[in-house]
Design a protein around this nucleic acid. Structure first.
Lengths: 345, 345
DNA sequence: TTGTAGGCGTTATCAT
DNA sequence: ATGATAACGCCTACAA
């Protein structure tokens, strides 16, 4: 049970330098009231004995958060969260904040556990892409303790703070793009389980179709939860029934890539006879084998907006008497044109 | 400058319950020396006023780490780190440890910054998939402060603690699989920049070819850094020169998917006339449009092994006089058979 | 069974 | 320019 030798602290430096630990603290932080000579001496000693400040202690004394948290359903190629994290991690670092990450592996129990841990770790703000639309378990744990920003669309605008891509507008963008290319038989492919994000896409699609006097064609896949398979089998069915539309907008890129695969197998010219669009602009969508026209999520903007709010709410919680900031933001999605759509021949 | 009202502490509970804050602390942690009645009373009050323990304070007092860190070059679909993180995040949570994540976006400067932050946050262990083979900047910052486990292959076995997939053996697995299917003209496709991981794969390939008396065929792509394009153009070249091998092992799945795309365009029957293998078992490899036979990284095992070592080194650093644990581990990769390989016709 | 005293590493405040 | 003291929230050790 021999304790290992501990990390050096400012007191150790103080002892060696023959000054008080307060002087050391101030010297290291370049206080103007400390003489240059002691500053250099203190810093020299700090370097020699390998001193590293203990942030836990600092933040305890300062009563200020050292980190922000992010919770995602899962990290994988079928989601866009990894790219949000890429940005958020860097943005946070520039604010001297660490990023605490929790990946739920789709488990609500884990999600709740992460929420608890984040609260106990006093994150300054918590960015959550929830696993489910019902976030009561999250609110119960975090409310009043830690400010939450919901992203990812599962919750819609039913929460206090959200950053949402404008999925409704995506519907309009998709229809407009296909219409502009000469398509009139424009279908929307959806998958189960239904959720708020899909509803918004559907409504945007429906309104855009109505504006143009077109008859909406909405198809739900049978029972596939795998959206690639859903797109694939839906296309197979429509081909066999001879009901294939000329323009297809899929609610997800994964589904669209299933559609593309089915079209290829049947030798149907993609972007010529049939145009296909997806949504999200995931990694594989850009690959030449898909070359998928899609609608990109504003990943960087989500991270930027979240960090911006985090900074504001941390400032608000730290001192100040300014009005409490909130975050109800809808960000535009962007059309990315590739080869899977083209003028109708 | 009006400070917001602070979070309740054990002292607040103590005041309300009319006991000392130590009693509260022990009651909340279910010490046997506390009476049931005070326990329930204390817990009741804690719930009512919304008390959450402050882990920073607890760990400061206990001198024990609250988290582990992980640093990756980037989070994206072309790497397997996201799945390692999925596991590690959950494993850490079960040990009551938070996961601090840093995504470098390929920047060595950011990597160094993260290292510094992780040290200041006193992570119990740091899992790093370094951006570069040279990790001197990391060692300079972390050495003696925080135990590091290198994963990802960039460093090879040149570091104190590593968890490496057995890339050499992957070469043997690949050749054996293709040989077993009747292939004799078996090529290895590599991409720039060269690195230790590629060298190991190459050596395994060369030895396996030599064992069978086969002539090695190693192709490097010209100048593409995008590995999909590298695989694509390399295949195009070989086809035009009429030098296409019957078995192709690509050092990465991304490259393999470029090969598959080129073969499809030329109408060459994949898994029949030409068999293609990749490496890593990334997300898109399983998709029906690739259906790529590949060699899987032991992602879960990497996370398990890393967490296991983290626990041991934290225990070692906390108390105890046991010998210092180390971690020099090579994990077997696994053949995943799909439709891109088949018996040579 | 409960309370008192002291410490974890840092910072702010106020003296000197 | 520097130091003494108290505080942040929680814990252990020991005493009552």
């Amino acid at each position: 049970m021999t304790k290992k030798e501990k990390r050096p602290t400012i007191k150790d430096i103080a002892k060696i330098a023959g000054v008080s630990h307060v002087t050391v603290s101030q010297a290291l932080r370049d206080f103007s009231c400390i003489s240059e000579s002691t500053k250099t001496k203190v810093k020299q000693i700090a370097r020699e004995i390998g001193y590293t400040p203990n942030l836990a202690a600092r933040n305890l004394a300062l009563q200020t958060p050292a980190s922000i948290g992010m919770i995602v359903p899962t990290l994988g190629s079928e989601t866009a969260y990894n790219e949000v994290i890429n940005s958020l991690s860097e943005l946070a670092a520039h604010e001297k904040l660490c990023l605490l990450l929790g990946s739920c592996n789709r488990s609500t129990e884990l999600e709740a556990l992460y929420c608890k841990m984040m609260c106990e770790n006093r994150v300054g703000a918590l960015v959550i892409a929830s696993c489910t639309s019902d976030v009561s378990h999250i609110k119960e744990i975090c409310d009043g303790l830690v400010p939450i920003i919901f992203i990812g669309g599962k919750t819609g605008t039913s929460v206090e703070n959200y950053i949402l891509p404008d999925f409704y507008n995506s519907g309009k963008i998709a229809v407009e793009h296909l219409y502009h290319l000469g398509h009139r038989k424009i279908a929307l492919f959806l998958y189960f389980p239904d959720n708020k994000t899909l509803q918004l896409k559907k409504n945007g699609y429906l309104d855009a179709m109505e504006e143009r006097g077109l008859e909406p064609l909405i198809y739900w896949n049978g029972e596939n939860t795998d959206t690639f398979q859903a797109g694939f089998s839906l296309t197979e069915q429509l081909i066999s029934r001879n009901q294939l539309p000329t323009g297809i907008w899929c609610a997800s890129d994964l589904m669209a890539s299933g559609v593309i695969e089915a079209l290829k197998i049947h030798g149907i010219a993609i972007g010529k006879k049939v145009s296909v669009m997806g949504h999200d602009n995931l990694f594989f969508s850009a690959s030449p084998s898909n070359s998928l026209t899609t609608i990109a999520l504003p990943k960087d903007e989500i991270a930027l907006t979240a960090m911006d709010y985090a900074k504001k709410i941390i400032a608000y919680n730290t001192d100040s008497s300014m009005p409490k900031p909130d975050c109800k933001i809808t960000l535009k999605t962007n059309l990315i044109i590739r080869n899977s759509t083209g003028r109708l021949l």
